[in-house]
Design a protein around this nucleic acid. Structure first.
Lengths: 344, 344
DNA sequence: ACGGGGATGAGGTACGTACCTCAAAAATCC
DNA sequence: GGATTTTTGAGGTACGTACCTCATCCCCGT
């Protein structure tokens, strides 16, 4: 049997009340006594029963996902996983809600965060481009007792030694490098051009992917030329236009790297402009669309992160923070997955 | 506030005692009343508070991993993750233990399973080659109220429609196919031979990987010749011998696929016999050794499954079975991961 | 209308922890 | 040494569920 607070009290030679005072950081306990209890905790291997504690406290956790409004399929997957997590974690007294805000306006995001009430929300997972306003708002949230994490994008600095728990998502530089490696190895060893298509290059995520991509190509596949990034702005017409122009000017494009999460618009143009899949295409994120494209060989490889894992990880980390508990780092590491038709 | 049994009783117009009888499948309730309670459950969205239930029952879950004795590094990783899971799930009243048995003797395994006591063990994750004896022993265990799952290897039939919860691990056919795809795309499009090295081809896992590998190579890269599988039996000396002989006879080996989980022995031979990494090497499982080999370019790609995920998945599935709960299928799907130096 | 038996209700205790009150003991101060 | 403050103990209630007992009710067949 696991030792209980009663056992702990006996082992420490104090009463239950004092054990409670020590465990919950209440005042009015001599330092000496605290030490005796702490030693007893070590000695008998006492572990607080969190279920019982939450029951007694009748505590439940309310978390919020702050997501952009943009309607791409990857975001839809994330939303689906959030509602899935809600039913899965339902019996554990956690509830996740969603708020969607225009990502382009840092002020609006900051205002929204400012308006959150610690009585209504225990933690927020924020998916938003980094900006000083949002960073400040996050700090203030934490001061007011609301836990926060950066979700998928918007970390302060990738590759820095920021704790895994502060940012939930992949290292975009590494993701770009992985794309670069695949591109380099899949293409024949002869000169050619590589096209990079993004929704916008203003997002740090896109920049980092591009950087990682270029690094690998530059170092190991110097015979490949990576063209300047084309920006679709999510508009089908514009995409068609600039892609036809680019393909016309560069008949020797051997590979295409679509680095934004919405591959649909650019891929449709690329497919039209290219004969019978003889151009290597690498894209990001698994959605019903990209999955189908992978199976029909319109896409050769997909670099993804698991939205279900992202969501659950965010919830587990927020919850651990609320409980002032450690998380299992290896479980929360979001992997850069590579998908072919074979390992879908 | 989440509805409690009290609310449920009120909503169903019955007493707490009857609610309890219905919820816990006790006898002495009219069918009609059961229906009324069930309807009330739907109506008010009642969800049993599992923490409170386990607390009341003072139930804790004791699970067992039955693993082979063989000391390869992948197994060591699994063992490490089991002890990690023990500390992570410690506060949730689950404990995982390990028993290691010679995998070669189905009788011994069956005997061991037979000896398990439902009072001591709630569930077992079994990693063992399939055999009629073990299959029977599993059935008997389940009859005696001990839950079982196949772990990593030993599933009855891969690709069949067996529920995800019965087998925890990757589809080895797909893993082999993924290796085949990588091999085919990474090699230049010119004739060459591919060497396949296994510890033994008697295991179904190895056979399936080989099958998947051959299928892809045969279909899409007909100019490649896959040599018969070499078996190392885990012996360094023997491996050295047969590999030098094979390389001497086949100077045009362009790629090597090491399909067993212990890549160390064959890789050391391959490295010695090959000049400066101009031979493509694909291996399985991430271990300290293969990781280092990937970084030093002795291995070009690694196909892996996450041991931490395997362990946690096994525990979650066993636990859900004990609680007669559904699992979140998407969380328990073990992915076939592809690793390069870039996405380690 | 009666007995029998199954169905139901009322109420209790327990699980391990949180949080409260009040009294008693111990340490501190002057 | 006495008064004051701080620390500690004892005991209670609560959380949501499980599991137990006993009393009562209703329905059935006769």
């Amino acid at each position: 049997m696991r030792p209980t607070t009663k056992d702990l009290a006996k082992a420490a030679g104090v009463s239950l009340a004092t054990v409670d005072r020590v465990l919950n950081d209440r005042t009015g306990v001599r330092e000496d006594t605290v030490r005796r209890v702490s030693e007893a905790i070590e000695k008998i291997g006492f572990l607080r029963n969190i279920s019982a504690a939450n029951l007694a406290r009748s505590k439940s956790y309310r978390f919020l996902f702050l997501l952009p409004r943009s309607g791409d399929q990857f975001l839809a997957e994330v939303l689906a996983k959030i509602s899935e997590a809600n039913s899965a974690f339902g019996s554990e007294a956690m509830r996740a809600e969603v708020a969607q805000i225009h990502e382009s306006d840092p002020h609006q995001i900051a205002n929204f965060l400012e308006s959150l009430n610690p009585d209504t929300v225990d933690g927020v997972a924020i998916m938003a481009p980094e900006s000083p306003q949002v960073r400040d708002a996050k700090l203030r949230l934490e001061q007011r007792g609301i836990e926060t994490v950066s979700f998928i994008s918007g970390q302060i600095r990738a590759g820095a030694d920021l704790a895994a728990e502060d940012f939930i998502g992949i290292d975009n530089h590494a993701a770009g490098a992985t794309a670069g490696r695949l591109m380099g190895r899949f293409l024949d060893r002869k000169p050619g051009k590589v096209l990079v298509i993004a929704e916008t290059m203003h997002a740090r995520d896109s920049l980092e992917r591009r950087l990682g991509f270029d690094e690998v190509i530059g170092a190991d596949y110097p015979y490949l030329t990576v063209l300047p990034s084309l920006e679709t702005h999510g508009e089908a017409e514009r995409t068609d236009r600039i892609l036809s122009a680019t393909f016309a000017r560069n008949p020797d494009i051997a590979g295409v790297y679509i680095l934004s999460s919405e591959a649909r618009v650019p891929l449709q143009s690329v497919t039209q402009l290219t004969q019978a899949g003889h151009r290597l295409v690498i894209a990001h994120e698994r959605t019903p669309f990209t999955e189908a494209a992978l199976l029909s060989r319109q896409i050769d490889a997909l670099i993804t992160q698991d939205p279900g894992h992202l969501v659950r990880s965010a919830l587990r980390i927020l919850r651990a923070r609320c409980d002032r508990r450690e998380v299992l780092a290896s479980q929360e590491k979001i992997r850069i997955e590579i998908l072919f038709a074979e390992n879908l």
